[in-house]
Computed example of a mutant assay.
Amino acid sequence: MRHRGAFAFRPWGRCAVAALLPLLLLACKPAAPITEAHPAMWLVEDADTRIFLLGSMHALPAGTRWDGGKVGAAIAAADELVLELAPDQLAAAGDVFRELAPRSAPLAMERRLDPAALAAYRKIEGAGSGFGGDALDDWAILVLMGQRVAQQADLSPENGVEARLTQRFSDAGKPIGGLETARAQLTLFETLDAATQRRLLTRALANSASGVADVKAMNAAWARGDVAALEKVVNEDVDAVPAARAAIITDRNRHWTKWVEQRMAKPGTVLIAVGAGHLVGADGVPAALEAAGYRVVRVQ
């Protein structure tokens, strides 16, 4: 199986990670009518620096138009683009996944899951080619499950925010940077303790019947700029697994906030696009910057 970019999957509760991490995207290209989206975006600025913070969705339905309005103006004004992963790191994600995903020794899924969870797993696996889960860590199975759910929800990475922004900035000859590496993102899961990984897996399976509907509902909230709805999804999901919240959201938000603070010392205009879940709530990047004394304004 070839992994091409970022992922959109829901390893717990509903679908928070679809709004958080951009690894292992799908390759489906469904047809769809044109729909307009108005995602939330913030601006932090001083006398000679402007930094736009755009909440992204890493995979979207075909036909989604999200880059008009204030977002379009920010794209045109920005001197550089900063994503979670620079293009070269996104391209490297598949190789890193294949390196980190295998278990040191196989463990049959029948020995990992209770009968109800095993039945849910077999149902998801049976919707396409097998996952080969016996040979994989629990977190890697979550990635593959999430790909399957996102595919069923007719999401396309080619229409995701990162893919379009990368094309726009590349065509304009503007630099594109990244906040993390592919290895660092996947290591977030690889280094979770075994009990946390198993809890994520079983929680995802317990809620798998509503996976497609949940992903679509979250995309709809993002499209209408409904940060309250996004915050509810993210908090509802990750609060149930505190170790995962710390690794996937809190620690990374703090790191990115420091990056923005350091970048404010350099003149210019920057567009930062990261998973929408990182920009909402009390520990989101905009709130953290406000707490640090910066004036942050929602501009869309």
Rank of each mutant, 00 (worst) to 15 (best):
Ala8Gly: 06
Asp193Tyr: 11
Trp42Asn: 00
His58Glu: 11
Asn207Gln: 08
Leu53Asp: 04
Pro11Ile: 07
Gly268Leu: 00
Ala244Val: 02
Asn253Cys: 12
Leu155Gln: 02
Leu205Thr: 00
Leu54Asp: 03
Thr191His: 12
Val227Tyr: 07
Arg103Ala: 08
Arg203Asn: 14
Thr187Met: 12
Arg112Ile: 04
Asp48Ile: 05
Gln152Gly: 14
Asp67Thr: 11
Phe7Asp: 07
Met145Ser: 10
Val161Gln: 02
Pro102Cys: 10
Ala184Cys: 06
Leu26Tyr: 01
Glu190Met: 02
Ala184Leu: 10
Val17Asn: 12
Pro286Cys: 03
Leu201Phe: 10
Asp48Ser: 13
Leu43Val: 01
Lys232Ala: 15
Ala276Asp: 08
Arg224Gly: 03
Val270Trp: 01
Ala265His: 14
Ile176His: 06
Arg263Thr: 13
Met145Phe: 11
Phe9Ile: 12
Met145Pro: 00
Leu279Asn: 03
Leu24Arg: 08
Gly63His: 07
Leu179Gly: 02
Phe9Gly: 15
Ala127Gly: 14
Thr35Asn: 08
Ala246His: 13
Ala182Glu: 02
Asp134Leu: 08
Met41Gln: 10
Lys258Leu: 13
Ser104Cys: 05
Ala246Gly: 09
Ala204Met: 13
Ala150Met: 06
Leu23Trp: 07
Gly13Leu: 03
Gln167Arg: 15
Glu84Pro: 01
Ile248Lys: 06
Met264Leu: 15
Lys70Gly: 04
Ala135Asp: 09
Ala18Cys: 14
Ala117Pro: 01
